[in-house]
Amino acid sequence: MEMLPFILATVFTAATPLLIAALGEHVTERAGVLNLGVEGMMIVGAATGFAAAVLTDSSVLGILAGALAGMALSAVFALMVLVFATNQVATGLALTIMGLGLAGLIGQGFVGQPRAAIPPVKIPLLSEIPVLGKAIFTGDFVFFLSLALIGFVAWGLNRSRFGLLLRAVGESHGSAHALGLPVKRIRLVAILFGGLLAGLAGAYLSLIYTRFWSPGMSAGRGWIALALVVFAAGHVWRLVLGAYLFGGITVAQLHAQAGAIGLPSQFLSALPYLMTIAALLFLSISGRKGAGAAGSLGQPFVPER
């Protein structure tokens, strides 16, 4: 029982980067853009964030730098996809490959250096509640930021004027253009937001989750975030649920490696990825082809003139 708040807290820590990256990609895809470069933007955020934190000796500045680095990489993607109307799938894959290489370069001198933890934020009064107080109301500031982002994204997409236009552009860029909506500008904002959050998620990995940098440390989390967006099928609450479910599996696997569960640890290490495949399989078997995806997702937009 004393372990429970600790376990819950680690679940949240494991889930937060997935959640943040997936929220960003969710917004991008609602605007009709498929950015498969999440993994690349994440790892560049992780490397840049860690390097900046060491150089400035400030983890907060590091996290900021990581987020901006993710956004910078997404700006490259936006240039290719929006200005040159390149194939989004190919461009996104290239972005991931480029990001992995770039991150190795940026993080070269920082491998294995340790970083101190960021002091946790305690919400007054609420953090005194047994179990939940330690699990939910005590945490790092990015965790609380991620909770705020859930509300911001859900409200922004469904209740704000900009969200209405963003979804309209994603649903049918042809109709949106005919009505005079600035399709490319809205998509640019969505892509940059996705990059910002992917970079933030990456910085969270290197500065809060593991607190060291090593090449390839994002370990497929960007792809899991992408799968979460598919799994969410347009609903933010499903995205949140999915992220915490995956966080839980990740932690269960760590405990299994310590021998707490009678299953081979390799199997459990593979579990998050197997779950990703299972979730995608479930969605496609349930028969609703493309259900929940934005109408013009992945299609290049070239207006006549």
Binding site: R159, S160, R161, L164, L165, R167, A168, E171, S172, G174, S175, A176, A178, L179, G180, L181, G295
Partner: peptide
């Protein structure tokens, strides 16, 4: 009023009406 409708299939009628109206939401 367009020949090939410039409507958004998965949106409600009210949302469709709101989209081109500056500053309005459904």
């Amino acid at each position: 009023v367009f020949q090939h409708f410039s409507l958004f299939e998965d949106f409600t009628a009210l949302e469709n009406i709101a989209i081109p109206l500056d500053g309005r939401i459904a």
